[in-house]
Design a protein around this nucleic acid. Structure first.
Lengths: 194, 194
DNA sequence: TTTCAAAGAGACCGAACGTTCTACCTCTCG
DNA sequence: CGAGAGGTAGAACGTTCGGTCTCTTTGAAA
């Protein structure tokens, strides 16, 4: 049994919460250290610096999303239902309390430099998501799953971004309509019975 | 003739460029003052502080977008072409050099507090955009223009956000396909000949 | 010519930033 | 028992932050 440091967990937990709700550049490590009830020295024993803490924050969120998506997909009855389950997990996120948009898109807005580790972490997670969605459309019988997958991701990005700027329910409605339209259009053209 | 301060123009110009390409919290006023070849005192003579400069930056971009959109709309032959023209202005932006996403979405990511003036400036511009698009779909003959308008905005947000994270051409392709699909679906159901 | 606002030059402020340091405590494992 | 890792506590580092200050120079209108 690997003993996971208690202080490290508190550190990463508060970092996740504070970075997500308030932004990254806006909050200093003093805030995180104080709210995690940890001293500065402890932070720098577990992380080389703020940058590494930010990357760890994003990777913890990425792990969470991967778990959620895996669960949603594997517990779906059909390929089409898998996509609907993914859509539902997105609408659930958007309508949940304290929703502040996509952690990765927000991070990318703060770290525009493509070479920066934080930006790279964002790109890595987005690549995983894109290929995962493409696999779903491939399972749906589409020979060329990229176009509908990109369409789905575009709707998802728009919904996640606008979800904390306008009425979340309306955004969710528009999103699920779009996804249903995408599924209908696909079956109407590529025509392989579900 | 109202003499517009030369220094103020330089200030706002460099602020626009630097804030857009590097983010807002990341750059201090020293950078802006230095690149604008202006002293600190001059900055604080024209703006009460950094916050006001940020708002001025966003409003200058908003003015630019309004002009572009007005021109695109008025020079279109039909209501449907107006929407296509708007879509084209978006793809043009995405594929242009130095594209870093939507200035407003990026700003919102850095200012999550809904009461903050910067956040409010973002919301104001987004409201204008939403109503403008809704008017276009209304002109297209749709009795209930909100759903397709929201769909359009969602695609736009997704495209603008992803346009600087993945291949811009692919994003544009997906976006115009989505818009065309939206127009087709609309005419196929609401059924008023163009 | 006088006047006055705009701008330049640059020192200065307190605060916050991310980071490093020493010193001491307290477990657990060998 | 003793060593060492992980934790606490807190001072301190130099830098940058946003913002204010005084003083001088410029230039055009009154």
């Amino acid at each position: 049994m690997v003993k996971v440091s208690e202080a490290r967990l508190r550190l990463l937990g508060t970092a996740t919460r504070v970075f997500y709700t308030e932004g990254i550049h806006s909050v200093g490590i003093d805030r995180i250290v104080a709210e995690a009830q940890v001293t500065r020295a402890t932070l720098y024993r577990h992380f080389t610096g703020k940058e590494e803490l930010v990357v760890a924050y994003l990777e913890s969120v990425a792990q969470l999303e991967r778990d959620q998506l895996d669960h949603a997909i594997t517990s779906a009855a059909s390929p089409a239902d898998s996509i609907r389950a993914v859509a539902r997990s997105i609408t659930t996120a958007i309508t949940s309390d304290g929703f502040r948009g996509c952690a990765f898109l927000n991070a990318a807005a703060e770290y525009p430099d493509p070479d920066h580790p934080v930006h790279q972490a964002v790109l890595a997670h987005r690549n995983w998501f894109a290929t995962t969605i493409a696999t779903l459309f491939s399972d749906l019988g589409d020979a060329n799953p990229q176009p509908p997958a990109r369409h789905f991701v575009m709707l998802r990005d728009g919904a996640m971004t606008a979800g904390c700027l306008t009425n979340p329910e309306e955004v969710c409605n528009t999103f699920v309509r779009g996804v249903e339209g995408l599924l209908n259009y696909r079956t109407a053209t590529t025509a392989k019975p579900a």
